[in-house]
Write a protein that binds this DNA or RNA. Structure first.
Lengths: 122, 122
DNA sequence: CAGTATCCATTTCGATACTG
DNA sequence: CAGTATCGAAATGGATACTG
């Protein structure tokens, strides 16, 4: 892909799609939480922590729209619902794991940097 | 890490830091654009396309604050500035590449899914 | 329990004009 | 050219109450 000056876009379309998918506060975390096994919304919320029911539903709906997550409802009372990764969604776990591994290895270095480069000192 | 019920947080702290870093519209794209060589802001904007000067500066400032990007100014007229990845920033390229590779391989499948699952049909 | 409907605070982004 | 300052639009997230 090229821009008006004939240069290659480093940020081509697929990359932007990937960013669009993961650049949400909870998307990566939810996908990660679903990577081991199907889970119910309540379990997801408890497992993740700090996410409201509304936002969890929103996130799941969007991941569904991308075809990354499937919803399965059981006809029971009280209602029971399970979410699981689709085959396509499962392919995202590898790159996500690469990212979380990176975070585990380098997270401390970033926090250290931030603490040693505070905005201003009195 | 555990929550109040003794369950393991799948989304532990480092993961959230990683999300915080990349969950911005342009952060991943800018890092990717800087992965090959140092670049000037104008070049970055042209290469990326669709990003305003203000937002580009914002993004670079935040990446600087994380210690992922370095700014080098030359005392010239007109002013010349270059941004480059730090050593720490360079370590992020591998997981980002995993993500962009995934996007290239699976982007089409997602677009297809979206087109075959439109909201409603008349 | 799962999900929706409101309402609201905050963040993020974009366009423009302007300075050194 | 690089960067800042504003202003406004839009997206995003959070808290709460409510329905089946």
């Amino acid at each position: 892909m090229q821009n008006a000056h004939g240069q290659v876009f480093l940020a081509d379309c697929p990359t932007r799609l990937a960013v669009e998918i993961i650049a949400e506060k909870w998307a990566v975390i939810v996908l990660f939480a679903l990577s081991l096994e199907p889970r119910r919304p309540g379990d997801l919320a408890g497992l993740i922590g700090g996410i409201s029911g509304k936002v969890l539903t929103q996130t799941l709906r969007r991941l569904q729209a991308y075809g990354l997550v499937e919803r399965q409802a059981y006809a029971e009372a009280p209602p029971r619902v399970e979410y699981r990764l689709t085959e396509l969604g499962a392919t995202l776990i590898k790159p996500i794991t690469a990212l979380t591994d990176w975070a585990r290895e380098n997270g401390e270095a970033i926090v250290d940097f931030q603490e040693n480069h505070r905005p201003a000192r009195p």
